[in-house]
Structure formats: structure tokens, C-alpha cells
Nucleic acid binder design. Structure first.
Lengths: 150, 150
DNA sequence: AATAACTTGTGTGTATACCAATGGATTTTG
DNA sequence: CAAAATCCATTGGTATACACACAAGTTATT
């Protein structure tokens, strides 16, 4: 509990005790910054978000844009921009869904598949490089705890 | 090591083995999304980034804009926007540095101090709420490992 | 002292990321 | 079946976040 480390405090005392560098949010932001740097070093063709969308699309087959967004934890506005850019790069193709006129069915193009398969090993390596400061046991625990925070 | 879970693979096999939901980057993004939601629920006046900058400024006293950026892990372009918005809200004041004509010295205003002290306890609570899915021991480990990944 | 190298703040461009609103399509319900 | 509720894609707005380039100021080098 919070109270074990921070017993009831006046607002001022709480402010004194607030050290930014100890906050989860700040640490997660920094850890993520490091990961993004590692990613763009290894894969410069795609952003992590674009790769996530492409990978998920290769995993799922043909899905609607919003469904892909849900599968990758992006809201409608975000996934639209990502898909637009993937289409500009000819990695993803879209066709209207004959069963539902609202939907756009997305599929990886041949080039999309090729790129995904070509960079998947690198993506694995990026995950490993990101976790490299931890030993095997620590990596397992970290991923487990991270999953619990999801 | 990676090889314990993923022995040498052909590109296609690597693609098969690539499950987005197991990747560190994806998990960190989702954990961060959850944290941001908790934050904005508790503190709606400021974004996490703005609060981080304000908190660090209260911690450091008078520093230049770029120095504040370094202390909060934001690059020059990012910290500029953040500080601009904090100034618009009258939480931060800027004066030219007499010793270095390039620099702008930043300081929290009285309102900035007041707001920081008022929300610091809430910020602590947000950290706790974010970590709530973990028990005490897990929280300690998680923060430790997170720090190692920084 | 003059030049080079660096720092600081700023501006531009691109890419997430989310909220709110909208119009059209589909599903659910009364 | 008709109305309400929901879903879908899109748009506009705001806020990080980083890369790059730039001008002006400062420090280091020669």
C-alpha cells in the first residue's frame, strides 16, 4: 500500500516527498523511449506502431479497420492514420466489405507479407535488445508483471 | 536468451512465431495507456507530461528550458511546447538569464507551486492505482526492473 | 584574437494518440 | 416494423515526441 511508504502527509509534505524519477509513469515513459530508439535503429522502414498493425493484420487475415485498431489497442482516429500510411507504402490493401457497407476490409499486400516476414526476426531481436539489461529470470518476471498491468 | 524460446528460425518461421501481444513494446504501450487513463481521471488540469515538467521545476528551482527538458527526458522541441502551455496557464514564468543571453530561466509561479502541492498527493495515488494489480513485493520488483531498463 | 565546436531556443515536418462530433449503415428492442 | 441503440469510418482539435535545420550566443581550440 501507499501508506507503508508514504504515511498521511500534508499537501506540502506530499509535495516534498514527490520525486518524479520514482514515479511509474515517468519510468515507463523513459523505458519506452529507449525501446523506440532500439526499434528505429533496427527497423527504419516502419514505426513500431505501423509494424504492430502490419503484424497483427498478418496474424488475423482480413479484418475491418476498427477491428484492427481494437486488436492493436488503437482508437479509430489513430488506426486510420496508421493504415493510411501503410497503404501509401503499398503494404496493406483495402476493399469494401460486401456484407457490411460501413466496413473496409484490410489485407496485407504481397509486399506487406514479404516485409513482415523479412523483419520479424529483427523484431524479435529488438525485443531481446530492449530486455538485455535484465537477466533471463528478470525478463520473465518483467513481462509477467507488465502483462498484469494491462 | 532469445534462443531458449526462439531457436534459429527461417524468416517465415520467425514470422509465425511473432505474436504481437508478447512483445515488450506492445505491452509497455498498453500499460502506459492504462496509466494515462488513470492519470487523466485523477488530474484533469494537467497532462502527465505537463505535471512532470512542473514537478521537476518545483524540485529544481530556476533552470533553463533545455535543462528542464533534459531533467524530464524531453527533447528541445517537446519541452518548448510543454513550457509554452504551462506559461499559458500561468503556472510557469520565464525571465532572461543575465549570465547567458541564449537562456530563458524558468520558475514556477505562485499558482504553479500551489497547484503542484495541491495535486502531489493525487499524483502519489495515481502511481499506486497504476500499480494496484500488483502486490507489494511485485510492485517493488517491477519498479526495480523498470529502472534497469532506463 | 580568430576560428571551430558546441549550446540554446525556435521553427518545420512527420507520426502517434485520444476526445468529441458527424453521417451513414446495421443491429437491437419495444 | 419502426425507433433506439450501436457500430463504422472520417474529421477536427489538442498534445506529446522526435528529427532536422537554423540563427544567435558561448566555450574551446589553435
Amino acid at each position: 500500500m501507499m501508506t507503508s511508504k508514504t504515511p498521511p502527509l500534508s499537501a506540502t509534505a506530499a509535495a516534498d516527498a514527490y520525486v518524479l524519477d520514482d514515479q511509474v509513469g515517468f519510468l515507463m515513459r523513459r523505458a519506452n523511449q529507449r525501446h523506440l530508439a532500439i526499434f528505429s535503429e533496427g527497423i527504419s522502414d516502419l514505426t513500431p506502431t505501423q509494424f504492430a498493425a502490419l503484424a497483427k493484420l498478418c496474424e488475423l487475415g482480413a479484418v475491418s479497420q476498427n477491428a484492427l485498431g481494437r486488436a492493436t489497442s488503437m482508437d479509430g482516429a489513430t488506426i486510420k492514420g496508421v493504415v493510411d500510411r501503410l497503404r501509401l507504402k503499398d503494404l496493406v490493401a483495402s476493399t469494401p466489405d460486401p456484407d457490411d457497407q460501413r466496413r473496409i476490409l484490410l489485407k496485407p499486400t504481397a509486399a506487406g507479407w514479404d516485409l513482415f516476414e523479412a523483419v520479424a526476426p529483427t523484431a524479435h531481436q529488438i525485443t531481446q535488445d530492449t530486455l538485455a539489461p535484465l537477466n533471463d529470470a528478470e525478463q520473465t518476471i518483467f513481462l509477467l508483471l507488465l502483462q498484469k498491468l494491462t
